[in-house]
Design a binder for these strands. Structure first.
Lengths: 341, 341
DNA sequence: CACCATTATGACACCGGTGTCATGGATAAA
DNA sequence: TTTATCCATGACACCGGTGTCATAATGGTG
């Protein structure tokens, strides 16, 4: 036998038609039990596997989902944001559980990625994952919608279709951070992240934080804010610039753990003690967070659940079912970076 | 226009045959330049994408690689070994650079995974990734070889085919660890990992470590060794058991960073100072390593290069080219866990 | 025994491309 | 003018399955 075995080979050995082989292998009730057994045995002996290309071509579906990862535009080539790596892991698991394969691909925001995977029938649907300047994406979302491409995305708001987004309750997370500071009388707060509308996630965290402070008659001084993207370097530099400008504060909320870690480095360098002088809270609860010195208090996003919801919602869309807007509850994880020692 | 556009649609609008459309889109030199331009324009207007299933079916190749991740059998459902996550990231990048898609899948060691992806024509080749009890895998490797499946694997030795393995020079890494201890007169060494043959990687690290000590007339006491798999928990418990048995040492080489991190926790708990009482070296240089307290000295594996080599070698195999055995040089990263303060 | 329902199977078109061969027209060489 | 050569294109089989329809065999019923 040269080359891979086909259903015709099995048909030949089993003394039945190829049609019957195909039916037998797919457990069609139309086929006799003995015939099926014989077919299965021969299939096993020949190490036969259904050719997915042929099968997908005929059925017009692929049992495959595509995951498109958008990188922070400025991020280092070699390192991937650990939060997204964690998401990638949980999405992979969720796909496997649902019997779907997962195609993974990195994309730069500018690339002409939209719909490529689904239009080419490589995947039945698309999961979009990435922080970043989502405003750029809106036209592409529109194009996806116009072509009736099935997709869900993490964090970003798709105009008029909130149901397509799976998202952590970033506003609630920001509120929890504020409450934690307030409970400890840390009311001279700083925020590091992106308080503009560019990143809807960071913005929501900021909004929740600010609003909850305001609800307790605390004003977040605009001078005590600095922009940063989600890297350690960026957090470090943003914090340094605050310190260099003699901005003081006793509590710091960072829009992500990486930013927080960079901030702690900058604070330490300046001789500012964490948490005694400044309490720090991050966001995400990446694996590193529990190993920093001091261990990082953070708002956890449940990536396992997030991955499951993304996959579950996408599959619903593919099946034409109704999808509900999904907000995942974050939870405060208190560690050493925010409580007096 | 309902449904996706096909090459026939384009042919219709362009007033040429479908054959010509297909040729034009693939930049065949047989087609007139003006015709090609017209075809491309219409294709763009119709948002046409080549159906990968049809194309793959005909050409019998998929421009896709499959990555099979084998989990530590005892590892926690939710967390994936960060070293492999990092590999996953670099492999994804390397695939993208080569114009290949990547199918990612988790597998348990027992599952009947072998050759599934390639036989079904979903992928042109397979990358196998995982620590674990590779002895179990050998028959499956044989079956892959027998079926002429194209695959490469990380770390594991495939009998008689060392060229199919891409691997860090674990022996050399173990030697570097030994040298680092020796240079500081830390000669009362312990090893935590798996010194049996089950994990060829851990075993090689152990062998290199032991041999280099021996070359310097230092004997590694067998009582100062404990088995562990690559998790923080396992490292913690292994170290605790050593301590509980009143085993003393002033240097500890852990077969992976996670083990080292668990070991440090156990040591701290027992009131043993790192590095003053015990110097610790890990292996991998995962992202967490630089944030532990103290920061972890470790033997770095270059995951970016590893991912590139895995992909490059696999593509060579697919193209029928000769593949060379690949050993990647590790490098010692000295941090606070191994040097006196 | 005639009639219809049920069951198991085969024949065949089809999915949407790709590769091969045939064909027609233009141009160059004889 | 005729023949050879080249170029651009069309027709068609093919990849390996799946879905539909037709058909043969079986069994139960009146």
């Amino acid at each position: 036998m040269k080359g891979k075995a086909t259903s015709f080979d099995i048909a030949h050995y089993a003394g039945v038609s190829q049609s019957t082989v195909s039916r037998a292998l797919r457990n069609s009730p139309l086929v006799n039990e003995e015939t099926r057994k014989r077919v299965f045995e021969i299939a096993k002996k020949l190490n036969y596997k259904v050719d997915k290309n042929a099968s997908n071509l005929r059925t017009q579906q692929s049992s495959t989902l595509a995951l498109l990862l958008f990188e922070d535009p400025t991020s280092d080539e070699s390192q991937i944001n650990p939060f997204f790596l964690s998401m990638l892991g949980s999405i992979t698991r969720a796909c496997a559980k649902e019997g779907y394969d997962l195609l993974v691909s990195f994309q730069s925001a500018s690339a002409d990625w939209h719909a490529d995977y689904e239009d080419s029938h490589r995947a039945d649907g698309i999961i979009l994952l990435g922080y970043g300047d989502y405003i750029d994406y809106q036209p592409k979302f529109d194009s996806l919608l116009a072509q009736n491409t099935k997709f869900v995305c993490w964090g970003a708001n798709v105009d008029n279709r909130p149901d397509l987004t799976v998202c952590c309750d970033n506003v609630g997370g920001g509120q929890q951070a504020a409450n934690h500071f307030i409970a400890q009388n840390r009311t001279d707060c700083a925020f590091i992240g992106d308080a503009s509308h560019h990143s809807p996630e960071f913005f929501a965290r900021f909004q929740g934080f600010k609003a909850q402070l305001a609800a307790n008659n605390i004003t977040l001084n605009e001078r005590k804010m600095a922009n940063a993207i989600s890297t350690e370097e960026s957090g470090y530099h943003a914090t340094r610039s605050l310190i260099a400008n003699n901005i003081t504060f006793n509590a710091l909320f960072a829009a992500s753990d990486l930013i927080a870690i960079g901030a702690i480095r900058a604070l330490k360098e300046a001789g500012i003690h964490v948490p005694n002088d400044v309490a720090v809270i991050g966001f995400d609860n990446i694996a590193i967070a529990s190993y920093t010195n001091p261990p990082l208090t953070t708002i956890e996003q449940n990536t396992t659940l997030a991955g499951q919801m993304l996959v579950a919602n996408l599959l619903k869309l593919i099946r034409g079912e109704h999808v509900q807007s999904t907000l995942l509850p974050p939870s405060l994880i208190v560690r050493g970076s925010s409580v007096h020692v």
